[in-house]
Design a binder for these strands. Sequence first.
DNA 1: ACTCTTCTAG
DNA 2: TTCACACTATCTT
DNA 3: GATAGTGTGTCTCTAGAAGAGTAA
Length: 587
Amino acid sequence: MLPCMPTAPKPPSSLEEPSVPAVESRNHGEAVSSTPPELETGYYVRNFEQVLDTVTARYGDLLTDSESAYAEDFGGLDERSKRLYVRLILRRGPCFRRDLLSYDEIDDLAMAAGELREAGFLDHGEEAGLEEGLAVLRRPELIELVISLGELTAAATRKLKRGELLEVLLRPQHQEETRRRLWAEYDIWRPLHGELLLLYRLLFFGNLGQDFSEFVISDLGIVRYESYPLSREHRLFQDRTEIDQAFELRVTRHQVYGLLEEGKLEDALALARVVSDQAEILRPVARRKADGILIRVARELERRGEHQQAVELYAQARRPPARERRCRALEQLGELRQALDLCQEMAASPLDETESGFVPFFEHRMKKKLGLTQKPWKRSRRPTLEMDIDPPQGSIERATLEALAERGRRGIFSENWLWRSLFGLAFWDVVFEPVPGVFHHPFQTGPWDLSRPEFRIRRRERIEQRLDRLREEPDLRPRLWPVYQAKVGIANALVPWHPELEAPLHFALERVSGPTLAIFCDRLSSHLRRYRRGLPDLLVESDDSPVGFELLEVKGPGDQLRPEQGAWIDFLNRHDIPTRILKVRWS
DNA sequence: ACTCTTCTAG
DNA sequence: TTCACACTATCTT
DNA sequence: GATAGTGTGTCTCTAGAAGAGTAA
Ligand SMILES: [Mn+2]
Ligand SMILES: [Mn+2]
């Protein structure tokens, strides 16, 4: 791990604006924003406070005293101290060297630090681990420190890398002296309560993948979010238990991944067992997270040949591929009967296409091994086309597209993005409809339930109506093009806006009819997470197709069809949208 | 002096 | 800070 | 052909500063 940069880059000296601003179309060339992006001084404090205030207002009754005090005490600081605290707590740290800190907009760092220390928002980091403290030093200073310990000569340290220098300093016999010298020679500052802020972030965003930079990139127009009314009366977390579970699960996941990285499977397993014990009582969203941890650890157990333990963890996880993996692990254990039973359970109610695709052959294999059948396994056949192609230069899909074009068949690389985009455009207003409880903060690219079956269920009427409309409209352009024009550039989980996608989108809009699109949207809207994968690679013109085009899933040598892909191919053919596998051979 | 990586700020 | 897809290696048939 | 493991790009921004590593 590399050190945090101990420096605080100066704000860029204001560059001279050219008197005649160059005409630059940023943001995908939508209307030129006339406002030169500029943020007021201390903008980051305002954003910070907005998060604290929102969370306090929405979750105040569920917060502990110390959690509430965090926001309240912060509010009591003066502006200077707030700025310093936010500057530091938002950086990687966790420790900083006083001599390398400098912010133009904070006039008196010492005074700010003094107040922060008094209010319990800053310390000298002596409690921090030595490793974290040492992270504030650059390589030359580490060398100096190593030499001062008398362990190595200057010459001997020359070639050592940063990590090796740290290793020397962290040796048990040197730790005490290293620690003493580090804190004697450097004034180290460490902002406190990062863990409380993490909780506030989780409550504000509902995840930890988003952070304060959302405010900035949004204010600057770098990312444009759709505007929708927030549901203030609906909380993402219903009670304290739910908050704790969500938070704990994220912490645990982080720990588990770290442990597995270090090869400490036993410790990871211990954590996984704790998760496993409480998996039953988790609500769906938390349950998914828990399942992810269980599956990850169980997978590692499988690799080590610990199939029995893997089976136990898989048994507590719901989401795919937990059952498939459990079947395979049971097979390894020789528990063929159990494997078959589980497999038939899956057959009765598959959770996704990996499950329904797995069931047939595995069931057959178990029956064969149990002596319940003799028949050989026959794979289901799908319409297939073969083609010889020259060079594998670039992607095989592109090469195939060119080869088809040479034969007078124009097409585009469509895969998942095209159909998701068309779905997103055709249902834009439905997606952003303010259904209660699905919009919690201003930086969402879609409603909270977009990927789940609830999306369809909760908007049943409107979705059915829209599908009916589509079924009446041969030409999609009058409906979708205006949406495209109006919304281009606005962040939407369904719609990527790369400029180079515009041409293929046009190509598709000229050829895909409303009734055809309705077939895709019907399926996608019913359970996006389940159906967003596996769509065929190419959309190609076709004269003898009832819909004017056909879809092709390109398969090179050594690439085989995945269950989700097979499921889409079968589905589309059932609905009279010609879809084939195109096997490519090198000529 | 060079490339590569990480981090920050807006 | 994931997820979907493809490629490669290895073993089995 | 089945399976596991790995690599790639990814609409969750991006220019620029500075450090690390390397080589001459
Ligand atoms: Mn593909
Ligand atoms: Mn393909």
